[in-house]
Design a binder for these strands. Structure first.
Lengths: 203, 203
DNA sequence: GTCTATATATGGATAGAC
DNA sequence: GTCTATCCATATATAGAC
């Protein structure tokens, strides 16, 4: 038994699992309690309300995405290498947290403002985007990259990363892949997406 | 007043709007009733239960995607033209139904089996995929298209279409676009995605 | 801190008048 | 067909014993 983990920690871990799986509305406090092997009342003892508990999970989870993206794009790697690192890093993160994309997409959809406000999302993203755009425009001027609007390129890259997870159930059905096969497919996609992007934009 | 529209039709329209916006769990019968300007009890009079009402919306909505995809890929257009038609067609459909992707992704996520079973999704998709793969492999053999695994190409194309809508709130924030600007962005993406894909795969 | 028992709120569903 | 009133199940939240 992992009884050296505090009750509070166990609740947080359970909550993360259930919220990720079912979203805020779909998740039930009973399920979280059961998953954490504690009484339902304890959730309220520690975290007061479902909403509060959720916020903690959400905040913590959000924070994972950005720092590494920032780090990559602020480095002085060549442009294509930044793309490669970015895609690999993104895929690795999402392979560890496969429910994250649907979770984030849903929560942002429900309340975009809240997402923007708390935890200074924009304050981190905007400067990083600026650097990306600057580097891209340089490459275009140098004639190494075809003319392309930065937002479209960014959207294309992020699409191919994130949708690999959002579309998992549908693609698994369509291609009749079991879990193992899909994991292999995801590993392939890391290389595949990089190659695809570079082939699309290199002059 | 559009009072020549039957109550039943008004309820269906309202239900579609609310279910699209909030998903099955999130939607409330009260909201649907209010949106349709009828009493809550009437929803049950016409459709018996929330689940039943939902199924009707879901079925109807699902049916829109596939037929045109099927039609395009079963035609005898050149390969690149198929891609172009597919992307344009997909975007146009989703511009008309921007909430569809999140709706579908959520419902498939909650119960992949059900999605597969009802309305013979696989029976339509699988043959169409076969044709796509066949045509792609021909093009590769002819040396007009680079070597690429069909499932990856398919995933790439669908990603860039669908995620343009799933990621809308986040991208709008990041790029500080208002509604009109995002609509323009989406129109651009039709051309942009086609160009991107063709540049990526043409030999 | 952790439990049992219970209060309270929400939302789907039904009964019955009109 | 449409309404009001009400029931009932589910799920969040709190009270109080240990």
């Amino acid at each position: 038994m992992t009884k050296d983990i505090s009750t509070e920690e166990r609740i947080l871990a359970a909550a993360k699992k259930i919220f990720m799986r079912d979203g805020f509305q779909g998740a039930r406090m009973d399920d979280i309690a059961e998953e954490a092997n504690v009484n339902k009342a304890l959730l309220h003892y520690y975290f007061r309300s479902k909403r509060k508990l959720f916020e903690i999970i959400f905040q913590e989870t959000k924070g994972k995405m950005l720092p590494r993206v920032k780090e990559i794009f602020e480095s002085d790697m060549p442009f294509f290498e930044k793309i490669e690192k970015f895609v690999h890093s993104y895929f690795d993160l999402l392979i560890e947290n496969p429910a994250l994309p649907l979770f984030i997409v849903n929560e942002v959809h429900k309340d975009p403002r809240k997402f923007a406000e708390q935890s200074g999302f924009l304050e981190v993203v905007r400067p990083t985007m600026m650097i990306f755009m600057q580097h891209l425009n340089d490459e275009i001027k140098q004639g190494r990259v075809k003319q392309i609007a930065p937002m479209h390129l960014l959207m294309n890259i992020m699409s191919m990363c994130i949708f690999s997870f959002l579309g998992k159930p549908m693609f698994q059905m369509m291609a009749n892949m079991d879990e193992l096969q899909y994991q292999f497919f995801l590993q392939q996609r890391k290389e595949e997406v990089v190659r695809f992007v570079i082939d699309a934009i290199k002059a």
